[in-house]
């Protein structure tokens, strides 16, 4: 019960942070809203019993990546964004589209809640511990873990290639 209440609270904070991120005009304000999103996500992970992922979420996302964001914003000296008028098409078609989509999905979930067909994911008591994650990462998921290095390599290469000055 407490878990559900906390989940709803942090979920709402997360969504509010995400909306604020889009609404804010100054990049720094947007970046700080992102911290709220990341931190509330970390708390949701904690509620799910994933302590390690929650800690990593705070250290990597709320910590390292956010510092990088703020640095880049300050280096570029980005000011407040200029508002464009927005497209009328988005207003006429997009807004009703979003409402219809959200309504349909919501109705489906509420009316079909008995037919969702999920599984009960009760793992072993070690679930979410660093030790258990390490076993998964370096045993069952060894290949995806190693292949990720190729992904990171090409991402770095792409940054170098696209950032290099053309002579």
């Amino acid at each position: 019960m407490v878990h559900q209440v906390l989940f709803i609270v942090f979920g709402l904070i997360c969504v509010a942070g995400a909306i604020n991120l889009l609404v804010q005009r100054h990049p720094i304000s947007s970046a700080l809203s992102l911290v709220v999103v990341m931190a509330s996500l970390a708390l949701i992970y904690l509620l799910l019993g994933a302590e390690f992922v929650a800690a990593i979420q705070v250290i990597v996302y709320a910590g390292a990546i956010m510092v990088l964001f703020v640095f880049v914003i300050m280096l570029l000296n980005a000011g407040a964004e200029e508002r464009t008028r927005g497209s009328r098409m988005a207003l006429i078609v997009g807004v009703p589209g979003v409402i219809i989509l959200a309504g349909t999905v919501g109705w489906m979930l509420v009316s079909g809640s008995g037919r969702l067909g999920g599984v009960n994911l009760v793992g072993p008591s070690s679930f979410g511990e660093t030790h258990a994650i390490a076993r998964l990462l370096f045993k069952e998921f060894l290949l995806p873990f190693e292949i990720t290095s190729v992904l990171i390599l090409i991402a770095i290469m792409g940054a170098v290639v696209l950032g290099k000055r053309e002579n």
Binding site: P144, I147, A155, V161, L162
Partner: peptide
């Protein structure tokens, strides 16, 4: 045959094509 691995492989193939698409620098 594992969706996690498929996701990573999909990203490798996609990101390399994103970069290659921007190769006509002029």
């Amino acid at each position: 045959v594992e969706l996690v691995l498929i996701f990573i492989a999909l990203e490798i193939s996609s990101i390399s094509t994103y970069i290659l698409a921007g190769y006509r620098r002029r």
